[in-house]
Amino acid sequence: MNNLWHQKVTQVRSQIESYRRDLLNWIIEGGFRLFLMMALSITLVTTATVIVLLVRESLPFFQQIPLKDFLFGTQWEPLIEPKSFGVLPLVSGTMMIVAGAMLLAVPSGIMIATYLNEFASSKLRALIKPILEILAGIPTVVYGYFALTFVTPVLKEILPDIQVFNALSAAIVVGIMILPMVASLTDDAFRAVPNSLREGAYAVGATPFEVITDIVIPASRSRIGAAVILGVSRAIGETMAVTLAAGATPKWTFNPLESIQTMTAYIVQVSLGDTPAGGIEYQTCFVVALLLFAITMVMNFAGNMLTYFDRKVG
């Protein structure tokens, strides 16, 4: 009797113990999932906050300055009287940097990718790739320093008219900075081209040059396009090199030898001064940042989509 009772108690006890463990497990599982989810939501909160913030601070600005004057005005003088708020000088400054950087980075990036992929031995490739990646890992402020203290003086020897701060020198270092990214994305694109395609081309008597220019590059054009777009986006957002080397004089010009100002450099300039929060000078920062954000986000989105769909199609 006593024994049976004891057995029953043990049974119930172990039952309870098992329920307890299940419940605990369930709570831990749920809590764990919740924690991970909350962590992930931070990325969404970041994007949302950025958008809300930029728009909120920009709205009062556009109540005073018509959008048309902002977008198509060729005078940018928000800090000195008489104030004018045409953003085109900052845009032209940025575009000069972008154009120069891409002119340098895209052809050489494609040629480096070609060399690594089609011509270099695998040993050489394994040696060169990490060295090139060092170039991508160097902080941008270092490139700014390099532009200011090396590239500009060298350019001055060749082009005596060049100003101490100029778009050309900044564009060159931004190009060097972006080069590894373009090269490595193009390299990925070339690697995704099946070897059977190359063999097919060689089998009809093509030379490497013909195979690359006529088969490999066209076959990977959407990914190369993505590399270019992402490179442009990086160049637009680049800050320190252009702040140090390109100058702080917004000018509606396309002369790369002159001092200019980019959108990013303007934002830095304002933040370095003692601009009181709330005034229209302070708001210009957010307006320019909104434009910057809109442009880069559209480009990043396009670039990522291109890569994404290309990968899906195979």
Partner: peptide, 14 residues
């Protein structure tokens, strides 16, 4: 290769 053509395991049209 100009005078010896080749067809591969998997079709590989350009």
């Amino acid at each position: 290769r100009r005078s010896i053509g080749m067809v591969f395991q998997k079709p590989n049209p350009f």
